[in-house]
């Protein structure tokens, strides 16, 4: 029994990328202890429930960005697609369209952005930074266009079911938003870790040439990653719409960067080929806990931004140092280089 348990533990720890997840989870625990000590209300059932609901959107956009990052690319259009989703769905609902039909139409529009991103990057070989910077601007423009450059009116009572599903409702004492995030995570984690498409995503991120010469259809696989990213951004846009009960044109601003943060804090490499979605959840939790916790202890917004930014840098730096296996050396090398520049 004892040895069997050890064996399972050993197996879990030997999963690639698990090391970083364990380290970050420990960090997350420390954060929770600190915030709890500063304000015991942090642990109140209400705050925990709210906190988890706040984290859910970070998890969802983080999943999408992780997919793209693991292929060795980046998706800067996430925030704008989120805004577009929020505006399209809300506009349709205020015009009397059934909320679920509106959601479906919205998701189709979002997926098309993902398809275009994938086509530009894998088909036309545009640098992903540029391609998605372009679609980011276009998608934001669409968000502004759909309701004539105005935020929408309230989506009304006919959308109460929709709002309950994505935001207000609770199932088994957890907000539905959290369930949506967990469901998406289960599906996309399965695809990434257990299926052929997932394996191809890692292979492309590790060495696109070798993957191509091994028969991997790199264009299709890259496009799938971008579609997943746009899909996740679209769902988050629906959540945002349900949250506010209206469409706001600047919804989702900077979310692409939050998504990068959740991914890299959780150990996804921006160079591709490495990282697991479990890390993305933990990374999103760190992100959410920092935001919520700092707010809870009364830190001003400016300070919050600075602290969170530093956390992103430190977590990536720690990863670099651990991965090179010789922290001291990379620091001396860094100093040596900077001395030379002088």
């Amino acid at each position: 029994m004892e040895s069997k348990r050890k064996n399972v533990l050993h197996q879990v720890l030997s999963i690639r990328g698990m090391g970083q997840v364990v380290t970050v989870s420990a960090g997350l625990l420390v954060l929770c202890v600190i915030f709890g000590a500063l304000n015991p209300n942090f642990y109140s059932g209400r705050n925990i429930a709210n906190l988890l609901r706040q984290i859910a959107p970070f998890i969802i956009v983080g999943i999408g960005q992780s997919y793209v990052l693991i292929t060795g690319n980046i998706d800067l259009s996430i925030g704008s697609v989120l805004g577009m989703s929020c505006m399209i769905s809300a506009t349709l609902m205020t015009k009397g369209v059934n909320p679920w039909a509106a959601s479906l139409i919205t998701m189709i529009a979002c997926i098309m952005v993902g398809f275009i991103n994938g086509g530009l990057v894998s088909g036309f070989k545009l640098p992903p930074f540029i391609a998605t910077l372009g679609t980011m601007t276009v998608a934001r423009g669409i968000a502004q266009l759909v309701n004539n450059n105005m935020n929408t009116d309230a989506i009304g009572e006919s959308a109460n079911g929709f709002r309950n599903f994505f935001y207000y409702g609770k199932t088994l004492s957890l907000y539905n938003t959290v369930w949506v995030a967990l469901a998406l995570w289960l599906v996309f984690n399965f695809i990434l870790s257990q299926t052929k498409v997932g394996r191809h995503i890692y292979a492309i991120g590790s060495n696109i040439e070798a993957a191509k010469l091994s028969g991997v259809n790199t264009a299709v696989t890259t496009t799938i990653a971008y579609i997943v990213s746009a899909f996740c951004a679209g769902v988050t846009g629906l959540i945002t719409c349900a949250t506010g009960g209206l469409g706001t044109m600047d919804a989702g601003t900077s979310y692409e960067l939050y998504a990068v943060a959740a991914s890299v804090i959780g150990g996804v490499s921006t160079l591709g080929g490495q990282g697991i979605l479990l890390g993305t959840i933990v990374g999103a939790c760190v992100w959410g806990v920092m935001q919520n916790g700092l707010q809870f202890v009364g830190a001003p917004v400016a300070l919050r931004n600075i602290v969170i930014g530093i956390i992103v840098i430190v977590s990536v730096l720690a990863d670099v140092i651990v991965r090179s296996g010789k922290g001291k050396k990379s620091i001396t090398r860094f100093l040596g280089v900077s001395l030379k520049i002088k």
Binding site: R16, R199, Y202, A203, A210, S214, V216, G273
Partner: peptide
């Protein structure tokens, strides 16, 4: 450059074209 996905495991490299 062309043969291996160096960040993937040996096992995953062998199975890559045979999935």
């Amino acid at each position: 450059k062309y043969g291996l996905c160096t960040k993937l495991s040996i096992k995953n490299n062998i199975s890559l074209p045979n999935l």
